[in-house]
């Protein structure tokens, strides 16, 4: 990974995000950044949108890319570009939550399983009433922040260790969050299929 970042022209796929960043750093040509945004922009925006709201997602998305523009020279290639980008974006998002005092630890940490049970009853009621209207997005919204975050990152293709790096959490915690998130969604899925 690190080698392909430093020698993009000789090693690795020329269109990989790391190579594009390296080309952009070296030449400053806009087209490389365009390709980079085209490759990772939608994924990042969706992640932010699901973790906040439209306005904040747009704002944080812009902020994150601006940080990429400012710090692209310092990218060491120790992780993939996408992991780096998502880590930047997540930090910006949490900073914004803290600034707006929207950040609640309860939402993040282990009490999510207790919360799940409470939510489960409410949500089961909603399901019975509006089963046909239940969509993936809504189910996702019902997940606590940390579980939703872990799940989206995994569905986005990040490995457990990459998710752990992005969220600054141990792998076991990530696994646990993913397990809870899946259990929660699976309940709806089962109910939906009945």
């Amino acid at each position: 990974m690190a080698l392909s970042f430093f020698l993009p022209a000789r090693v690795g796929n020329a269109s990989s995000a790391e190579s594009l960043l390296a080309y952009f750093s070296r030449t400053g040509q806009r087209r490389y950044l365009e390709q980079l945004v085209a490759q990772c922009g939608d994924d990042l925006y969706y992640f932010l949108l699901k973790q906040s709201d439209e306005k904040m997602a747009e704002e944080i998305c812009q902020q994150s890319w601006l940080k990429v523009l400012e710090k692209h020279q310092s990218f060491q290639g120790n992780s993939s570009f996408k992991t780096w980008l998502f880590t930047i974006a997540r930090n910006c998002l949490l900073d914004e939550f803290r600034r707006q005092q929207r950040w609640q630890l309860l939402d993040l940490e282990e009490e999510v399983s207790v919360a799940n049970e409470k939510w489960h009853d409410d949500v089961m009621l909603q399901i019975s009433q509006h089963r046909q209207q239940l969509l993936f997005e809504q189910q996702l919204k019902l997940l606590p922040f940390a579980q939703r975050e872990a799940l989206i990152l995994q569905l986005e293709g990040f490995s457990l260790s990459e998710i752990a790096a992005i969220t600054s959490q141990p792998i076991e915690t990530v696994k646990s969050r993913l397990r809870y998130a899946r259990q929660f969604l699976q309940q709806f899925c089962g109910a939906d299929n009945e």
């Binding site: 806009r30 950044l33 365009e34 945004v37 922009g41 939608d42 990042l44 925006y45 969706y46 949108l49 747009e58 998305c61 812009q62 890319w65 601006l66 523009l69």
Partner: peptide
């Protein structure tokens, strides 16, 4: 939910 075009343009303008 793709990234809005205006955001994409703003990023490139910033660049």
């Amino acid at each position: 939910y793709p990234m809005p075009k205006k955001i994409r343009q703003q990023i490139l303008q910033q660049a």
